[in-house]
Design a protein around this nucleic acid. Structure first.
Length: 333
DNA sequence: ACCTGTCAAGTCTGG
DNA sequence: CCAGACTTGACAGGT
């Protein structure tokens, strides 16, 4: 089984390369000339895209093919006060440059719209802003020229005191989405509310591929071992929605998230690095089912955590681990 | 250069 | 019913 590792949004080794620079609403409003304020937003967005490209070049130099973009590439993009603003015209070339680089280097990229995207919500206005947020993420991927193999990963959302009903509402509200939004979704188990078993069920009902977060599963489970769910999780990656647009990398490998508990006191928090042993145990247990998997590392030290994990994996070369390059390994079943 | 409070958005908990 | 926590990088305003 070939395992590729990636990291999220920002690098701790490339300096001054934030892809998430922003502007607060109050400073936007303090600029008297609205046109000038909007041009400033667009300049910040262009800078974020430029830094994203720098990170992608760093990734290529480090053999890293899996990366999650910052959702904050365009400041205030979905804010109500800026409904009349279409930033994509001004940023077309910047987005295209990022997308061209991704395609030229066969990278697997994604977004993770944050916790304001809640498709289980009973409130129509929250549903609408969630859909708007998904449209914004889709628009960015389209501006990059990337097909539906580039996904937006989300959680189910809140339980509102009745998890069963909320789960059903999630399934209904996802099913009612335009295909162009739905085919770009993946669904991840969370660490408090919808556990891996429940998320898998929602994936079966919606056709969405499941991103298993093995840290969330560790702190929120029904007593199952994570690899016991793997055959069913793998099936969610064989559906039409999972494979939509996957012309670049066909079939699209399944993806998981890995991180380690920050401390005993804060087991849900993310540690600086990623412990090799629990991850390796999981990977060995699924190696017989899957020939490729991508692992998104969610660690405080970002790419540094990836390099640290690769060092640990190099020490396991006598134990059925073969390091292939700077960011991928082969695990013998 | 460095520190502290704040930030657009949602949900849950505790008072 | 409302304030604060959650979580987190970066801004904004201060020293």
């Amino acid at each position: 089984m070939i395992v590729r590792f990636g990291y999220v949004a920002m690098s701790v080794t490339v300096q001054n390369a934030s892809p998430s620079k922003t502007m607060t609403l109050s400073s936007f409003n303090k600029i008297g000339d609205r046109e000038a304020a909007i041009r400033k937003l667009e300049r910040i967005a262009a800078e974020n895209l430029h830094n994203t490209l720098r990170l992608l070049r760093h990734n290529r130099a480090s053999d890293i093919q899996v990366y999650r973009f910052s959702s904050k590439l365009i400041p205030l993009a979905t804010h109500q006060d800026l409904r009349d603003w279409d930033p994509f015209q001004a940023l077309a070339a910047d987005f295209a440059e990022v997308g061209n680089y991704v395609r030229a280097n066969k990278m697997r990229v994604s977004f993770h719209p944050d916790h304001f995207t809640v498709l289980s919500t009973p409130r129509p206005e929250v549903l609408q802003s969630s859909i708007n947020d998904l449209k914004y993420h889709k628009a960015m991927l389209e501006a990059m020229g990337l097909g539906a193999e580039a996904k937006n990963n989300i959680h189910i959302g809140g339980a509102y005191g009745d998890k069963v009903t909320s789960g059903q509402r999630f399934v209904e509200q996802v099913s009612a989405l335009d295909l162009s939004l739905r085919e770009r979704l993946t669904l991840e188990n969370d660490d408090k509310t919808f556990n891996a078993v429940e998320t898998l069920e929602a994936c079966k009902l919606t056709g969405l591929p499941m991103v298993l977060d093995i840290h969330h599963q560790w702190v929120n489970n029904e007593g199952e071992k994570p690899w016991e769910l793997w055959p069913d999780i793998l099936d969610t990656w064989k559906g039409e929605l999972a494979q939509a647009g996957s012309s670049v990398d066909h079939p699209l490998p399944p993806k998981i998230h890995a991180s380690s508990p920050k401390s005993e006191k804060d087991p849900r928090g993310h540690a600086d690095g990623v412990l090799v042993e629990p991850l390796l145990t999981f990977l060995r247990n699924i190696a017989g089912y899957t020939d490729r998997i991508d692992v998104m590392l969610e660690a405080k030290l970002k790419d540094e955590a990836l390099f640290g994990l690769m060092n640990e994996l190099r020490l396991q070369e006598a134990n059925g681990v073969k390091v292939l390059d700077g960011a991928s390994v082969e695990i013998m079943p």
